[in-house]
Amino acid sequence: MKSGEEVRAVDDMDLMVPEGEFLTVIGASGSGKTTLLNLLGGLDKPTVGKVVVGGVEVSGLGEAELVRFRREKVGFVFQSFNLIPTLTAAENVEAALAPTGMAKAERLERSRSLLESVGLKDKGARLPVELSAGEQQRVAIARAFANQPKVLLLDEPTGNLDTATGKDIMKLCHENSKKQGQTVVAVTHADYVKEFTDRLLYMRDGKVSSAAPEEEL
């Protein structure tokens, strides 16, 4: 993957993630982790090579199909939560359901039940600024699960959280994804994420390997 003129953010990668697996990719900042997730989630396209998710070649999809793919097949959780600041917790979740054409009553019920599943039953009317960092990330998780995606992509989901809250969040993602049979790819540099993963890969300079780099060891 070329980013700019010369930098290859993801380079010569041959990665296969089986359905239902919780894969964690650990790497330092700038190692290409986010680019890898952007490629898997259809936010970026590779300059060379292809990305196939659930039998669909994402890298070959047109604009309309990509929108549908992002809406129905993947759920994103970002490091900085990325909630819409003017919308309440419930509306943030509803924002992911709105483009599907789901009826308003159904959307409201679904966002309520999703918030309940992440432990925020009574906080649907709160604005992001009125929630703690952990609670904001829970809202982001509820939003990621909104359309029951096949693939969940976690981009440094614990990066802005303390260790205890981070572990709670990872546990929540792990339990929910296993319950729904989702494939999870999490990129992080938090060591404790290892506890929740089925497989661990290390990423450096755009390349992945199953062996930890020397400095990691």
């Binding site: 936010l43 990325n82 924002a95 599907t100």
Partner: peptide, 16 residues
């Protein structure tokens, strides 16, 4: 800009 990116990432189309 970032908000628009988030909306697109969660499945909003250009027309949305």
């Amino acid at each position: 800009t970032r908000e628009i990116g988030i909306l697109k990432a969660i499945g909003w189309s250009k027309s949305n």
